[in-house]
């Protein structure tokens, strides 16, 4: 399993953002759904090795992120797009992607080709030499995705990756997700239920720091059948039903 976590919690002061999550995932696309404050971002940040858990056990790519040498090995095979993508405004798209390729220790000789492949894969070839400060919100998200995939990761973590993308770009992005999920474990945190239905083989629904549902999009849809829960689409009704049950 590329992700294997057991009873993981994360506290920020008195707030328990993640409250005893246990889950495992192999290759494929896993959608992480949930309302604001459900703990999705905190869970992704722990999986990205940005913050350690307060308690519990995490193993990523069969390694322990608590051990420096193993954490480094994990990070070489990890791609991460945070919710708020930081970037150096004066860098070009290529410089931005190359910067993270180098920090991921992609062998120097392979960096130019890896950068070109990642930039083309997200459709930013015509903006390769544009400064980051000149890009639109959707282009910035795509540059963020390019840096995440530049090392051909085995574990890819995307926090709200479709925010700012137009419908055409979102369709293209779903295709990219499905492609990446052939070989890697891809975890996508999103508010957009339709993204999960279109691109994810598995879905986990978080609420109050806990995972209240883990299954396929079809199973989530089935939970809402015959119910009067809110939602314009079957998957949304399943989402609302599970949330209502978890809170009752």
């Amino acid at each position: 399993m590329n992700i294997d976590i057991t009873d993981v919690t994360r506290r920020f002061g008195r707030t328990r953002a993640v409250a005893g999550v246990t889950m495992s995932a192999g290759p494929g696309v896993l959608g992480l759904l949930g309302p604001n404050g459900a703990g999705k971002t905190s869970l992704l940040r722990m999986l990205a090795t940005v913050i350690p858990p307060t308690s519990g056990r995490i193993r990523l790519l069969e390694r322990d992120p608590g051990v420096a040498a193993q954490r480094r090995a994990i990070r070489r095979r990890l791609g991460y797009v945070p919710q708020h993508l930081g970037y150096y405004p004066s860098f070009t798209v290529v410089e931005f992607v190359e910067y993270f390729a180098l920090l991921k220790e992609v062998p120097a000789a392979q960096v130019p080709r890896a950068v070109a492949t990642a930039v083309e894969r997200v459709g930013l070839g015509d903006k390769a030499r544009a400064r980051m400060r000149t890009l639109s919100g959707g282009m910035l998200r795509r540059a963020g995705i390019a840096q995440a995939i530049v090392n051909d990761p085995e574990l890819l973590l995307l926090d709200e990756p479709t925010a700012g993308l137009d419908p055409e770009q979102r369709v293209a992005f779903r295709g990219l997700l499905r492609d990446l999920g052939q070989t890697a474990t891809v975890v996508v945190s999103t508010h957009l239920v339709e993204d999960v239905g279109a691109a994810c083989a598995q879905v986990a629904l978080m609420d109050g720091g806990r995972i209240v549902f883990h299954g396929t999009p079809q199973e989530l849809t089935a939970r809402g059948e015959g119910r009067t829960a809110a939602g314009d689409a079957p998957l949304e009704r399943g989402y609302s039903t599970v949330l209502a049950e978890a809170r009752s």
Binding site: A48, L78, Y87, Y88, F100, L102, L103
Partner: peptide, 13 residues
């Protein structure tokens, strides 16, 4: 550091 969050997930510590 604009890219601090990303830097924290990189192999170069």
């Amino acid at each position: 550091d604009d890219a601090w969050e990303l830097t924290c997930s990189m192999a170069v510590s």
